[in-house]
């Protein structure tokens, strides 16, 4: 393994994470990840979305060199994985499928152990860095307690602390707010924003759409091992069109006018008439309603949330794909 720069151009230096046709079939299983083509821009906070069993954790395991891809390539920080694991991983902090701790060791000793496993970690600064990481996740007071006595949220925080033992260029967080109280969630979100503003790229898998919407600049959506879409969060939610909402005492007339104007999917509910937001100028639509003698109380477009986009894209009910 060369001691050269971890960012040397390798045909894939346009993103912090770049995968091409990445696939994984577990032994005796179906394709868990199928032809993934993912590009995570440097400096982004990248949300990785998908229903249960869609292949998020499998992708992360391949990126971290824990499992070998069945086919395709994955580059992290410009280097191929899993081949360059020893050069790449010291720059990456990871939380994969929840924290894993030595229950019989204290929180502090757990971090000391994980830090000792990093070949680039300076043993002379180990204690200071561990203390700083504990402080960063708010565990200083519980640092001496045995990890088996930690609550779920405390374990999650300790796992995050392990990812923050060194300055990182990339953080890979698999459902980091799992098990945290609302206060903890907010702290983690703040922490992620802080890290991102320092230039760390954050790759974040989550089920919590509003969380992704709040912290992420970019997102990708997976179902059944396939990537459906990726891009800036604003573009994704814009992709699912908002709905035009007209509030009026004359709903029947309003619905007729809207249909004549070519508005699709018109639905009447009491005094609310809604339809897909049309391409044409909304001022014209409003003028047409008034001209037709419809008395308009309210008029506007409700912006689609990421959740609408997600449901529209994955089109899935509650059941996990088998």
């Amino acid at each position: 393994m060369g001691e050269a720069s971890a960012t040397e151009p390798d045909g894939a230096d346009d993103g912090v994470i770049v995968t091409r046709a990445l696939s994984k079939r577990y032994r005796g299983g179906q394709l868990a990840v199928d032809g993934l083509r993912l590009t995570v821009p440097a400096g982004s906070v990248f949300g990785f979305l998908g229903p249960n069993g869609s292949g998020k954790t499998t992708t992360i395991r391949m990126l971290m060199g824990l499992i070998e891809p069945t086919s395709g390539t994955a580059h992290v920080l410009g280097r191929p994985m899993p081949r360059s694991a020893r050069a790449v991983l010291p720059h990456v902090g990871a939380l994969i499928e929840g924290p894993a701790l030595y229950g019989f060791l204290s929180g502090r000793d757990n971090l000391l152990r994980y830090d000792a496993a990093d070949p680039t970690a300076d043993p002379r600064t180990r204690r200071t860095r561990v203390a700083a990481a504990l402080d960063r996740v708010g565990l200083t007071a519980a640092a001496g307690k045995k990890a088996k006595a930690y609550s779920l949220g405390m374990k999650q925080r300790l796992g995050l602390a392990a990812a923050l033992l060194q300055p990182r260029r990339l953080l890979v967080l698999d459902e980091p707010t799992n098990g945290l109280d609302p206060q903890g969630m907010r702290e983690i979100r703040t922490l992620i924003r802080e890290l991102a503003s320092d230039g760390t790229t954050v790759f974040l898998s989550s089920h919590l759409l509003d969380e992704i919407e709040q912290v992420c600049t970019h997102a990708a959506v997976m179902t059944r091992g396939r990537l459906i879409t990726q891009g800036p969060v604003a573009d994704l939610s814009a992709g699912a069109r908002g709905r035009l909402v007209v509030t009026t005492p004359d709903p029947a007339d309003a619905a007729r006018v809207l249909k004549e104007l070519g508005v699709a999917d018109v639905v009447v509910a009491d005094d609310r008439v809604t339809g897909e937001a049309p391409e044409r100028d909304l001022a014209e639509v409003n003028a047409a309603l008034v001209t037709a003698g419809v008395r308009v109380r309210g008029f506007g477009v409700e912006r689609a949330s990421l959740e609408d986009a997600f449901v529209a894209l994955t089109g899935e009910g509650f059941d996990v794909a088998g």
């Binding site: 020893r86 991983l89 990871a94 994969i96 894993a100 701790l101 994980y114 990093d118 070949p119």
Partner: peptide
């Protein structure tokens, strides 16, 4: 216990570990 994956991403290196 799951601690193996964190040792490996540290990265301890499989042969060394």
């Amino acid at each position: 216990a799951g601690t193996l994956r964190y040792l490996l991403v540290a990265p301890a290196g499989r042969s060394r570990l």
